[in-house]
């Protein structure tokens, strides 16, 4: 067991009469998926290293309702949304950062209509701001000169128009950023969106994550960077299925920066 992180919950903060700068919305994958938990920790360490005061909801956090909504279950989505909004408004939360583009999209775009308006940022946007303001130092470390390709999560890219923040962070790693043929507005989905993560794909001649992983491997990059825990799972599975896991590592942008800084 590594050294425990000292991350407070909102309830603890409130008991001490403190309101943190930002709420870190961890999300279901970030809380429970073993691979995604590493992304959560890497990001928490980066926040701590930058001196950001933040807290999590812990047991008071619940699924945003994104997979329910995209499955067509608007009831369940709105139930989840209203319960979360009650908690968030109760703490007077103003700013939210999350490592999941699905949570990011739902909180940012679909909660305001139900009474929950916050300033919501994806962690790559937040980290870029920290870097630009000098609070976070990003340097290459072991990634200097390494080839990295970036996979655009649909719910960060096309859904919300953010293509540059993750790329700016990767460039600051002094790495060689290689684009896949299908990138940015034309980026190919990893196959997990729209609640596909939780079901078997429909019948076809190939799985989408294989198609995307092949494209990533073709670039010759040693690292596939993502900004989404679900893309991470899909790409990791795809790279493994192609037997390329010894040559290509799938990592979140936050993990790369944290590792470069030896956090």
């Amino acid at each position: 067991m590594e050294k425990a992180l000292n991350v407070p919950t909102m309830a603890e903060c409130q008991a001490q009469g403190k309101l943190p700068e930002v709420l870190f919305w961890v999300g279901c994958a970030g809380s429970f998926d073993d691979r995604a938990k590493k992304i959560t920790k890497a990001f928490a360490k980066l926040l701590q290293a930058s001196g950001v005061s933040f807290a999590v909801l812990g047991a008071e956090e619940g699924c945003t309702g994104d997979p329910a909504k995209r499955s067509g279950n608007e009831f369940l989505f709105q139930m989840q949304a209203m319960m979360n909004i009650e908690v968030l408004n109760g703490y007077g939360v103003g700013q939210i950062v999350t490592t999941c583009p699905h949570c990011f999209n739902t909180l940012k775009n679909e909660y305001p209509g139900l009474g929950g308006s916050y300033q919501v940022m994806h962690h790559t946007q937040f980290l870029k701001n920290l870097m630009d303001s000098g609070r976070l130092k990003v340097s290459g470390g072991s990634f200097r000169g390494k080839k990295i390709t970036y996979h655009d999560p649909c719910y960060l890219g096309r859904a919300n128009g953010e293509y540059e923040a993750p790329r700016a962070l990767l460039s600051a790693l002094e790495s060689e950023l290689i684009e896949m043929k299908r990138c940015k507005t034309r980026g190919l989905c990893c196959g997990a969106g729209g609640a596909q993560m939780f079901k078997e794909p429909e019948k076809g001649n190939k799985d989408i994550n294989i198609e995307r992983s092949e494209e990533a491997i073709e670039t010759g990059a040693s690292f596939v960077a993502t900004g989404c825990p679900f893309c991470n799972t899909m790409m990791t599975d795809g790279v493994t299925a192609k037997g390329a896991e010894s040559k290509v590592a799938v990592m979140d942008v936050a993990e790369l920066i944290a590792k470069a800084a030896d956090l």
Binding site: M1, L5, K37, A44, A59, E61, A68, L76
Partner: peptide, 25 residues
């Protein structure tokens, strides 16, 4: 997936009380 979200606020069958466990793992 949907009944998991309904019962324990996550698409997988994990207890909502354990959401913060990663902090001390």
């Amino acid at each position: 997936t949907m009944s998991n979200i309904e019962n324990n606020a996550a698409p997988w069958p994990f207890n909502q009380q354990d959401r913060g466990n990663w902090i001390n793992e």
